[in-house]
Simulated scan of single mutants.
Amino acid sequence: MGGGLFNVNGAELVVILLVVALVVGPDRLPEYARQLAKFVRAAREQVTKVRDRVDEEVHAELGDVDWKALDPRQYDPRRIVREALLDDPAPATRRAGAGVAAGAAGAAAARVTVPAAQAPLVAGELAPFDDEAT
């Protein structure tokens, strides 16, 4: 019985009930018990109505969300990187570093699209430089 809302154990509850019975008196005790039971029933009904309303509104807002797919424990960084690297690029583009020796971090970080018509640099030729770039 103890450990509930008010942390009252069984012995304390018996003492409280005896004090209430003495203060209220045996004549009015059944009426107060009925009123308490009616109040508890009404409170439960209100809580149930509120819970149902919240469930309806949340379901209407979120629709059919697949919560299992959004669970962060489902994400495996190795699988995500592997799938990103094995993804076929569009035909008019190629991956950055496909023809050049690129570091693993650069290849895994992001896919950069380069126009297919760009010719490779000739030995000794400087790379294009944009002096207005940051």
Rank of each mutant, 00 (worst) to 15 (best):
residue 50 V to P: 00
residue 54 V to Y: 11
residue 48 T to D: 10
residue 47 V to D: 14
residue 53 R to N: 10
residue 59 H to E: 15
residue 36 L to I: 02
residue 41 R to Y: 03
residue 55 D to H: 10
residue 37 A to E: 08
residue 65 V to T: 11
residue 35 Q to H: 04
residue 60 A to V: 01
residue 75 Y to N: 15
residue 58 V to R: 07
residue 46 Q to H: 09
residue 37 A to I: 06
residue 55 D to S: 08
residue 44 R to W: 06
residue 75 Y to F: 15
residue 67 W to Q: 15
residue 73 R to Y: 09
residue 76 D to T: 04
residue 63 G to A: 01
residue 62 L to C: 15
residue 74 Q to W: 08
residue 46 Q to C: 05
residue 61 E to D: 10
residue 36 L to S: 09
residue 74 Q to I: 07
residue 70 L to R: 14
residue 44 R to D: 12
residue 53 R to E: 14
residue 65 V to Y: 07
residue 50 V to S: 04
residue 41 R to F: 03
residue 45 E to L: 02
residue 40 V to C: 05
residue 42 A to H: 05
residue 76 D to M: 02
residue 54 V to S: 08
residue 36 L to C: 04
residue 52 D to G: 11
residue 45 E to G: 01
residue 48 T to C: 13
residue 64 D to F: 08
residue 49 K to T: 05
residue 49 K to M: 02
residue 47 V to T: 13
residue 61 E to W: 11
residue 72 P to C: 04
residue 37 A to G: 07
residue 48 T to H: 08
residue 36 L to V: 03
residue 55 D to T: 12
residue 48 T to Q: 07
residue 55 D to R: 12
residue 73 R to V: 03
residue 55 D to N: 13
residue 50 V to C: 01
residue 63 G to E: 00
residue 57 E to Y: 05
residue 48 T to W: 09
residue 57 E to G: 05
residue 44 R to S: 01
residue 70 L to G: 07
residue 71 D to K: 12
residue 48 T to I: 10
residue 49 K to Y: 05
residue 73 R to H: 08
residue 49 K to R: 08
